[in-house]
Structures are given as C-alpha cells and as structure tokens.
Write a protein that binds this DNA or RNA. Sequence first.
RNA 1: GCGCCCGUAGCUCAGCCGGACAGAGCAGGGGACUUCUAAUCCUCAGGUCGCAGGUUCGAAUCCUGCCGGGCGCGCCA
Length: 578
Amino acid sequence: MSEALYDLSGLAASLQAALDEEVPPDAGVDAPAMELTVPTRPEHGDVTTNAALVAARRAGRAPRDLAAAVGARWMAGPGAGVCDRYEVAGPGFLNLFLADSWYRGALQRLLVEGGEYGRDVLPVARRLKMNVEFVSVNPTGPLHVGHARYASYGDALCRILAFAGHEVTREFYVNDHGTQMLRFGQSLAARYGQRLGLDTRVPDDGYQGEYLLDLADELIAAVGDRYREALAAVAPDVTTLPPDVTGEIRVWGRDSILARFRATLERLRVPFDVWTPESTLYEGGREHRGFGGEVGQSLADLDGERLLYEDGGAVWLSTTRYGDDKDRVLIRQTGDPTYFLSDIAYHRDKMERGFEHMIDIWGADHHGYVPRMKAAFTALPPHDPDKLELIIGQLVNLLESGETRRMSKRRGDIVTVDDLVDAIGVDAARFLLVGRSHDTTLDLDIDLAVQQSSQNPVYYVQYAHARICSILRNLPPGAGPAGEAVPAVVVGPYERALLRTLARFPEVLLGAAEQRAPHRVHNYLGELAAEFHVFYRHCRVLSDAADVTAFRSGLCAAVRTTLATGLGLLGVAAPDSM
RNA sequence: GCGCCCGUAGCUCAGCCGGACAGAGCAGGGGACUUCUAAUCCUCAGGUCGCAGGUUCGAAUCCUGCCGGGCGCGCCA
C-alpha cells in the first residue's frame, strides 16, 4: 500500500479517483469539490465523504446508489488494506471505518515527518512571493492594545503563510511625513522647552500625552539645551519655530519612538523584515510635478494614464475611473502632498520590489479608504487589482469593569502593549488576541484579563505539551518510539481519536492560510490538547507491554511536535515543563 | 442618508466557499488525585442560530428586506 494513503488528503485523492472511474469527470463543468472530513459523531465513521452527493446530479444517479458504487469500487482497490468497512448513510454520505493498519500507517508518517509535518501544504504553483504590511502606526506615541491585536494577528498570519509555502516579507510602513508628524514634533519641542523651564505650550491639536515629557527628558540627555534659545525666542508658541529646529526635534523623536516600537514588538515576538519610512518615498530620482523619488514616479505614471487633473488649485486623481465614489486630492492647494499620494507611491515601490502579492492589514477605522486605494493601485501598472489584498481588522473595545473606555493617543489616555504584556504575559496575550476572527470586534477587559490570565486557555495547550515532555523524560532507555517503526498493536478508541485529530492538521493549516484565519490554528490546538488530555486519562503510556509503550510514546511524540508547531505559528512558547 | 463588519448557550466566541440531531471555553450543579504533571478528567444543566421572506433534495451558512450594535463617509492619517 502506498504511503500516500496515510493522511486525509491521500485518502481523499484515492476516493476522488474511484469517483472519477465511476463517473468520468466532465471537462466542461466545474463541479463542486468533494470533501473528506472527520465527523463529530462516531457512528458516522472515522472519516466521511460527500463525494456521491456532489456528483449525483452530474451522474444522473441517486446519491445513495452512487455512494454504494464508489464505496465498492474503492474497497476493491486502494481501500482494501486500510479500511474495515464502509456504509452509505443519510442522503448519500459514504462513511469509512478505517482499520488499525491505517492508524499505524498514519502514525508512522507523523514520526517520519516530525517537525516538518504540515509544512508546505500549498501546491507549488500557488506559492507566492508575498509582502505583508501591518501595524504601521504613526511614530508619535506608544503602541496600544489595539495595535497588539493587529501585531499578533499579522505576525501569526505571516508565520502561517510562510509555513504553508509562501515566501513572506513582513513590513512596517512608517508614516513620518505628514501633518500628524508636524504636530508631534511641535509637541515634543514644547515639552522639551518646559523641561528647560520655558513656558512653551503644546499646541491645541498636538499630542498632550505625558509620555512626551519622558521623551523630552531623553532629548535633553541627548542634546542638552541646544534648542533653548530658539524656543525662548518664540515661547509660548512653538508653531513659529524655524523649520530646521522642529525638523531636527521631530526626527529625533521619530527615531526614539521607533526604537521603542522595535523593543515592544520584539517583546511581543513580532519581528519585521523591512521598515519603510514614508519620508524616503520623496527622496532621489527625477522630479515630476515638483516631487522626486517614488512619489514623483507615481505622479508621472498617473499622468501617463491621463488620470490627473487640477481643480481649485489642487491636483486630483480620478479614482472614480476605477470604482471609487469620488475623486481624491493628491497635492493640496498648499502644494503639500496628501497621505494618499504617499500611499500610492509606497505601493508602487512594493510592486517594483517584485512582490507577486501584497497584503495590507488595516484597522476598521480605515475601511473607507479601501476603494480609493484599490482604484489607485489598479491605475498603476500592471493594472491588476488582485495583487493587492486589503484585510480589514475590526477594532478592540477596551472595557473597564464592563464599561467601554475610549482611548485617545493625543489625550494620552491609553493602555499600552507593554501594559498588557506586563499584566498577563506574552503567551496569554498572544493567544487571547488571535483567538477570534479578525472580523469580529474584540472586547478586552484588562481587569478581567488579568483576573483570568491564570485560566487562559493557552495554559491548557501548553500543559499538554509539558505533560508529554514529562512522560517522554520518564521513558526507560530504549523504550521510546523506535525510530519510525510502529509496532503492530491494536489501536484503541482514544488513540484513534487522537490520530484523527492529528491527521486534520494539514487541512487546518491550509484553511488558516487561505482564509487568513490564524484563529483556526488557535482553535485546533485547543481540540488537540483536549484530545490528548482525554487520552492521557485513559491510556497509560509507560506500560509493561513494550509494543504498547512504543506505540503510545510515539503517539505522544507526534502530538508534542504538532502542538509545538502550532504554538510556534501563533508566536506562543511550548514549555517542556510547567 | 450611503458603505463595510457583527448579531449563535448566562458571558466571550467557533462553525458561515450549503450537508447527517448546532460546538468550545468561562460561569453554575455533581463526581474522580496510593497511578507517566489534577494548570487534568468524567458528568449534569443551558440555544426560537436577531426577525421575516426566498433559493435548494438540504440553510446558522447563499439572496432580499427589516431590527439592533460597531466603524467609516476630510485638500487628517
């Protein structure tokens, strides 16, 4: 029997072949794909397929008759060695009751694949050179818990996409060019002045947060009173400072905050490959409409497409040509570029870097921006909207003992990522934040999270891993899984259940990657851990029978490896002991 | 007003590219530690899948319309 049969996709392929022999596929018709699943109810078999239901119409046969025919054909062929019996049930399901030999073969596969189990589930043809951009916060203040969600989601997604076979570059776009940065620089300058005893004031529309006082202290430590005179000359109004002074302060502040970002994200186990500052998009290159760099090139491209026009002293892009509901300004009346123009240049830059697919992860408060970004992207060569995928993550509602708490960075009223990690730890935070679909608003009650952190489901999963490590440590010498050899023991119900769950892992990963849904891995790990804990309660691993010990410890090793792989994909540690 | 997301057990949410009597965690009731880690296991209780239509052999899942909540609709980012 070929090794390929000992996993779900192998079984599915052989059943598909039997179906195709029974009902030759119609080249012209795109039939819905058959599915092979592990049913929740044991009487529905070890695995079940809807193949006959899906093909019945095309075959012009009754689903139950077709299921019986496919079952008989399959059992006479590839199923003979791995399946005890089959049943036709319900409207036409084909339920398979697998033999011990299949389970032993499945375990053997798991042991052979080890830590590689589940890797590269994507067919080669569908693997892409991808860029995933996420977090991308203005460097004007600390990262708050909302950012922690996108960081955790984006990071887990990147890990999953890469594990599934894509080549992934993780990127942080730094908005360091616009009005908000200007206000940030002025606010920092004012705080710096205050620390030097001047009566400089933070502008009304500036950043009032106290963290800028800390930053001002650091600035003094770095440059002393270098800007004192300039500030004293304009006090209390910092908005009239010479541009070179605010510029220097702004850049220093930006770099200082970016350094903090890096430290916090590293702590959260969210690494980035590339940090692209918006300001660099304006540097170098030939000028067009007064702008150099990637920005100038983008303007030239769009002019080439005849999509730019002037109105009211501003330069507009005709995004309506590509489905937006109104045109958008790229260059303001004042001559200043809009954020949108930078963003267009940024995406042009990513395309030039050769990515076959780009994912941007944005917060729901930016979703209104999607049509114009799509339109602009499509307007640029190669005019392919499918290369850009915009994922909108819903927001985090911060609750305080049941009451919604509003956060505002400019007011400085925030709960930071570091606060969260201090309170509940990285593992609990990451597991909590990717446990739900990105499409659902997440209610986060910090007090409750702290209170409940000890019963966070993450420990349930980690405990299963630690338990297995302990068991394997207690194995007498030579009693462990004997390499890849799986003894011919009878496979009991708990072992079977565990192996079926293990067998689902590649499909779970594929679904998580395709649907951009890390929470599927999260949920799967809970199921696998539960299945293991049940097995542990009912089956003694270290037994007197050498073959049983070898089989069960092999099974444990496979569970441990899969747990470790899955936890790793979520950025959560897999401890050897707890 | 228009657009996007959500509405499933007391709470927080899975399931949603159609499939067999709707799942988990937490909270609640009752049990199990001379045994490889009790951060565990077993068990009980708990639901008009927001409402109403439609498509289908089959709808929590797809379509339409309502209702409720969140977020947007700047020459801010």
